[in-house]
């Protein structure tokens, strides 16, 4: 494990990504301390420029503090990113494992099903789901999870298939180890690293989908989110660029951070590279 950490941190992608991610996470955790007031509250003069009236990033059309919105928005992004990825992992890894182990007719049925789900325009399906089930944190998480699992299922299936035919797994079976022990001790540890990496990338993608949903007006109306802020600011972009620029930068930073961490994870978990 220390070897793994060393490799991870030695890569610039890992160090930079982790720092940025720590920053965003801190923002999310300490939001109520940094800006105790609700981000929905009007706290200044509408259309204040950045720096004016004590507002770092300016105010929006109703005089709400953009900086407060950016800080509070981190919460919803991270919560939805992680929760919907967990949902997708649950569906994808389960289906992938079943298909990979079972083989035969069940396997081809799952593969077909996954392929169809992968062709469906996933963002449109997410819109449909959230619109019909009415927008709330729970429905958004469910919708993003439901449209994000196919790549995870495909990868899991491929990994399980390739690892379980490897000779060291057959040798373990010949050694008389129980199926459970073979799976838990030999197959999973050797199959899981690409899935972890793709999982990290899925969090980033989920944050982007959440932002797009709330930009389209399908966010949870009880929580401030970056996508909503951009959507609200876009009609007045001629007069007030700051209303859409800052929340966008927040999304960009978060997603880059997660992608960098994912890339460094990939290098660190890949034994070929880390040993060289």
């Amino acid at each position: 494990m220390p070897q793994f950490l060393k490799t991870f941190l030695r890569r610039p992608a890992g160090a930079v990504g982790l720092t940025l991610l720590a920053l965003v996470t801190a923002m999310a955790i300490f939001a109520p301390l940094i800006y105790p007031a609700s981000p929905w509250e009007m706290s200044g003069i509408p259309f204040s420029q950045p720096g004016e009236n004590g507002m770092l990033m300016g105010a929006d059309t109703l005089g709400r503090d953009i900086a407060a919105g950016v800080v509070h928005g981190a919460r919803i992004s991270i919560v939805i990113g992680i929760a919907s990825t967990l949902t997708a992992l649950l569906i994808g890894v389960t289906l992938g494992c079943v298909a990979g182990y079972a083989g035969g007719a069940l396997d081809s049925a799952i593969v077909r099903f996954t392929e169809i789900f992968q062709t469906i325009p996933n963002f449109v399906l997410a819109i449909l789901l959230v619109a019909i089930l009415t927008p709330s944190i729970a429905t958004i998480i469910l919708a993003i999870g439901l449209v994000s699992w196919p790549p995870l299922a495909r990868l899991t299936r491929a990994q399980v298939r390739s690892v379980s035919t490897r000779e060291f797994v057959q040798a373990a079976r010949c050694q008389g180890q129980s199926t459970l022990s073979v799976v838990v001790r030999h197959v999973l540890p050797n199959a899981i690293s690409p899935i972890i990496v793709l999982g990290a990338m899925t969090v980033a993608a989920a944050i982007l989908i959440e932002a797009a949903l709330s930009f389209m007006g399908l966010g949870d109306p009880n929580y401030m989110s970056w996508g909503y802020m951009i959507g609200a600011g876009r009609t007045v972009i001629r007069q007030a660029w700051w209303m859409s620029v800052f929340p966008g930068l927040a999304i960009l930073t978060t997603v880059i951070a997660i992608n960098l961490v994912g890339e460094a994870l990939n290098d660190a978990l890949n034994p070929r590279i880390s040993r060289a």
């Binding site: 932002a211 972009i237 992608n259």
Partner: peptide, 22 residues
């Protein structure tokens, strides 16, 4: 590529509007 890959599409569009049209 790394930066573009992490950019929300709608926001990127708005930024292009800001620069190239406004």
């Amino acid at each position: 590529a790394l930066i573009l890959y992490a950019t929300p599409v709608f926001w990127f569009g708005l930024m292009l509007v800001l620069v190239f049209s406004i």
